[in-house]
Simulated scan of single mutants.
Amino acid sequence: MKDQEKIAIANQYFKLADQGSPEILDLFHQDVELYFPKFGFGFGKDAFLEMVKGFEGSLESILHDYDHLNFMPSGDFLIVEGTSKGKLDGKTWEGGKTPGGRFCNVFKFRDNLIISVHVYLDPDYTGEDEDRFRWGKSRNW
């Protein structure tokens, strides 16, 4: 795949994820491998649905900052670094302004589909685990 094709699929992934659209599954290879912090590894499209289900009833909104995503292609891989903002259980976060909201995804592609996506972020989006922050809350996020 060409780099621009991978980037287009990743952009679509973030937009469909933000919309909560089931069409996101169409971007995945049937044998997709998923990693998300505290969820661990999952395999297949059903694992993605299981991971998303963990946010049911608590994730009110999410929006990735599409205009400022950093794309780093390498062979079959595409690394995407960026920020998101949203609302979880009535509390908001915004990457760059709060501890949560910065992320890095590592995509791998096969047959023009996502065969693997590993998500790296702090799943404590709204900083509820602040008591265990080692550097206090005065840091620049």
Rank of each mutant, 00 (worst) to 15 (best):
Q4E: 15
E5Q: 12
A10G: 01
A10C: 01
Q12P: 00
Y13H: 13
K15L: 13
D18F: 02
Q19T: 05
Q19Y: 04
G20D: 03
L25T: 04
F28M: 07
F28D: 04
Q30I: 09
D31R: 10
V32R: 06
V32F: 07
F36W: 09
F39K: 05
G42Y: 04
F43E: 12
G44S: 04
E50Y: 10
V52R: 15
F55Q: 03
S58N: 14
L59R: 13
L63N: 14
L63H: 15
H64E: 01
Y66M: 15
D67S: 10
H68N: 14
M72K: 08
P73Q: 07
S74C: 08
G75L: 10
D76S: 08
D76W: 03
V80Q: 05
V80W: 05
K85Q: 14
G86H: 06
D89C: 01
K91Y: 11
G96Y: 10
K97Q: 15
G101L: 02
F103K: 06
N105M: 06
V106S: 07
D111N: 10
L113Q: 14
Y120R: 06
L121M: 13
P123V: 01
T126C: 13
E128P: 01
D129F: 05
E130K: 14
F133E: 10
F133N: 11
K137Q: 14
N140H: 15
